[in-house]
Amino acid sequence: MTQPILSLRGITKHFGGVKALTDVSLDLEPGKVVALVGDNGAGKSTLVKVMSGVHRPDSGTYLFEGREVAASNPAEVADMGVQTVYQDLALCDNLDAVQNLFLGRELTGPWYTGYRVSRAAAEKRAKEVLKRLRLDSISLTRNVGAMSGGQRQNIAIARSILWEPKVVLLDEPTAALSHSAAEQVGDLVRELASHGLAVLVISHDIHHFVLDNTDRIEVLRLGRNAASFNSKDVTGEQVVNAMVGGNEAVNMAG
């Protein structure tokens, strides 16, 4: 078993009287895709926000590369090598793929050009990255607003790995996508893992997306660890069962 790169131990987070997370533990290993599933309100998003530094846990330990870290703000966590792609993607529709990939981190020329943006260098770099991720079909010069949902999702993911993080957290990457677009995202997720990244995916699409594209499934229920499955030897029904708890789940899944 490979050493986890990111480990959470006994994470508890309450918002007033609401117990969002209670004693939750989670490991992410390099080269592995972990699915985080759970019913609405199970604490998935809160957990991702703890991991990305948006929320500070009330108690528990955040270990990165074996060391305990504070993870108290998002920029710090991103610099450490943990990138998060939120559901809204945060793309600018009036800019093209290259501009979106480098937004806020443009490569620039010398002072006498007025720190002119080095478009060619950025485009070259973007091309290499997209090629490595097998996303060559994405146009570099079209506005992302004119692209399909799957392509936009993939650009957002590509942007998160442009500066070579070690961990990528994906919040509902397939929620608004068609079946074929979700497959494109699935391909990309496995591609990321094959490059040695640790990937965490939140998804509701258990039967199509989670079982096909992940290595392990972590189930949260009512803010606690409910189950952990190896994706290869589990059925969708078993996962759904663990999500909602008890036998009534079988009927729902059927």
Binding site: A90, N94, Y115
Partner: peptide
């Protein structure tokens, strides 16, 4: 041609995305 110019366009389209990109 400049960063500032790109940011004008970015903010006009999606200020929240621009903010999260560190602008």
């Amino acid at each position: 041609e400049t960063r500032f110019g790109t940011y004008l366009y970015a903010i006009g389209n999606n200020a929240e995305a621009a903010r999260r990109a560190g602008i």
